[in-house]
């Protein structure tokens, strides 16, 4: 049988230029891992050149995969898997900067401290946090959350009083629900005054587990 599709090797007839274009120019070594390596290098250069508005990484945790994102100032967003991470990245592109790349190094410290926290080897976070996503009253509330000690809880009413607006219980609840940096800013330590646990962005079950972890 004579092969019909093979280019002539007699030197008189060249293989079709188009064929050569598509075969020769198709990068053979450019699998996903090759491009990942190029992308990692790109992120490092972007960071060096001050072009990386938001650096993010994915972090495995006992509560599922977390998205940790940081500006040059500090951790700007932490998201549980229950929030669609792609949606969160889209929001960050709109609200912080579209110059976003996966670059774990910037959140190495945050990740290490979170790991320690989950392993009960850390009670307080010592990290720069960028609260640019919260403004006004909500910012006051979120800033105050860090004052609630590890292993204790506060009620929405107490928190409202603490920020100087005892009637704003509902607004305090809403501020906690919109905390952009949960875990590190411990909104899970705020519960209902009737003793029930209250809502949590990462799910009520997660909130219960976190309080149990801190109580142990």
């Amino acid at each position: 049988m004579t092969p019909t599709g093979t280019p002539s090797r007699d030197g008189q007839q060249n293989p079709s230029t188009e064929n050569v274009l598509s075969t020769v120019f198709a990068p053979t070594t450019s699998g996903a891992s090759y491009l990942n390596a190029l992308t990692t290098e790109l992120a490092a250069r972007a960071d060096r050149d001050g072009l990386l508005g938001v650096a993010f990484r994915y972090l495995d945790s006992p509560f599922g995969q977390l998205l940790v994102a940081a500006t040059e100032v500090g951790v700007v967003r932490l998201a549980f898997a229950s929030e669609d991470h792609d949606v969160v990245l889209n929001e960050l592109a709109d609200t912080v900067s579209p110059r976003i790349l996966e670059f774990p190094r910037r959140t190495d410290d945050a990740s290490r401290q979170l790991d320690e926290y989950f392993a009960r080897r850390r009670r307080a976070f010592d990290l720069p946090v960028d609260l640019r996503l919260v403004r006004g009253f909500r910012r006051d509330v979120v800033s105050h959350l860090t004052k609630i000690p590890y292993g204790t809880t506060s009620s929405y009413g107490e928190l409202a009083a603490a920020v100087g607006n005892p009637r704003a219980v509902r607004a305090v609840g809403s501020a906690c629900a919109h905390n952009p940096v949960p875990l590190i800013v411990p909104c899970h330590r705020v519960v209902r005054s009737d003793g029930t646990i209250g809502d949590y962005l990462g799910g009520t079950e997660t909130k219960r587990s976190l309080l149990a972890l801190e109580a142990a």
Binding site: S30, T39, R99, E102
Partner: peptide, 27 residues
């Protein structure tokens, strides 16, 4: 509609750009 995060631009178009660069330059 807002801007797409640049990370998506790289993952969506990275292979194409590499093909263009390989067409013009050695690897």
């Amino acid at each position: 509609m807002g801007m797409v995060p640049f990370s998506s631009v790289v993952s969506d178009h990275g292979p194409t750009v590499l093909r263009v660069c390989r067409a013009m330059l050695e690897p």
